[in-house]
Nucleic acid binder design. Sequence first.
DNA 1: ATAAAAATTTAGATCAGTCTAAAAAAAAAT
DNA 2: ATTTTTTTTTAGACTGATCTAAATTTTTAT
Lengths: 217, 217
Amino acid sequence: MLSFTEENYLKAIYHLSEDGSKSVLTNAIAEVTKTRAASVTDMIKKLSAKDFISYEKYYGVKITKQGRVEALQVIRKHRLWETFLVQKLQFNWDEVHEIAEQLEHIQSSLLIRKLDEFLGYPSTDPHGEPIPDKHGKVSKQAQIELDSLAPGYKGVIIAVKDSDSNLLKYLNRIGAKPGKRIKIITKEEYDESLEIEIGKKRMSISKSVSQNIYVTV
Amino acid sequence: MLSFTEENYLKAIYHLSEDGSKSVLTNAIAEVTKTRAASVTDMIKKLSAKDFISYEKYYGVKITKQGRVEALQVIRKHRLWETFLVQKLQFNWDEVHEIAEQLEHIQSSLLIRKLDEFLGYPSTDPHGEPIPDKHGKVSKQAQIELDSLAPGYKGVIIAVKDSDSNLLKYLNRIGAKPGKRIKIITKEEYDESLEIEIGKKRMSISKSVSQNIYVTV
DNA sequence: ATAAAAATTTAGATCAGTCTAAAAAAAAAT
DNA sequence: ATTTTTTTTTAGACTGATCTAAATTTTTAT
């Protein structure tokens, strides 16, 4: 059984590794877990002793198969709870992240099975992110970061990153929700900001925003 | 903001004090929190420094007004979550206690408001216990412990204690649920066990069971 | 009323998770 | 190819929550 804290580190490592493939550096983990590098080193030792990650001193960590399964269970719980909060309790999609960060650590596999059933086995959360199944399988659509597309492209928003509640409030205000059609009009060279169209509205968004929007073309 | 652990101690003290009135001894707290007396003494100092309890060395603690309000918020959350688990997720009433012990510590007053609304503002939990309102007000029916009644009495079960999941499984099996009619046939002198009738079924229950059943007459 | 028993508190240790500061190693720059 | 900078690790300390063992206080029994 992993502790609350171990689960958080493992989840952070999983996300930073881009779904378990790439290896992750100590400082990067420290940044997203809001701790210091020294603390990360300690936790790395613990998680690698338990075989959730493999670790080469000074060269970062890689998540193991076991670690990936464990991380995906936490992510599954997070996304199911977010779905519950939005669909059943009428939360806005930009209000649920912090609460789901707590709920994701509740221990009961029966609870998650029943919650999944209650929600009608959703395949994505309110931000469009896929919900891993109970075995840790993720059915992922090809999702492209908006900032990597050139002017002229049209697509549909399929997901947004849910890490920052302020970003979500902003996306909500400009109408950038999963399912919406989006078109790139122009791209500024010097700061890579985009002029886009969502519905009938024209607007300009910075690169730090467009990086967090995923589309299909 | 209280920690998970502080909330648990405060809840334990509240319950042991029988709704905040009586004063509570160190060993009793140690027993229900499954810790040692020395640990309890430490926590008592912490909680009394924060003014949730008042403390006289060697003579136990009393909960303050502030402490009672805080404890009742945790109890409110516990009972709302139990109601959710049974009514919405189809859990049996004897399976929900441990999960609610975790859920009761989730921090978000908006969540609890919305959960309450979602459940239709229930007044009691699945075990018949009253759910305190957001101000900590408990609307309590006169509830009498079954073991204090004499043979011949008839009544209706209005609640059972939800602390022990094995007890609940047993009560479930013999049909002792809130709402059921119950009659005391005879009482054994030497062990205070009762012969009772629930529905059309006759059975004998020990004092340790009858203490946990509340009825109205 | 005093001795024995029980309960409570204190003292000191441990564990998990965190930190800062110093040391060591790797990467980047000259 | 050195030197400088950056990153990572180690060493040692702190906090919150826990423990055991010893000391203290209260309660109970004789």
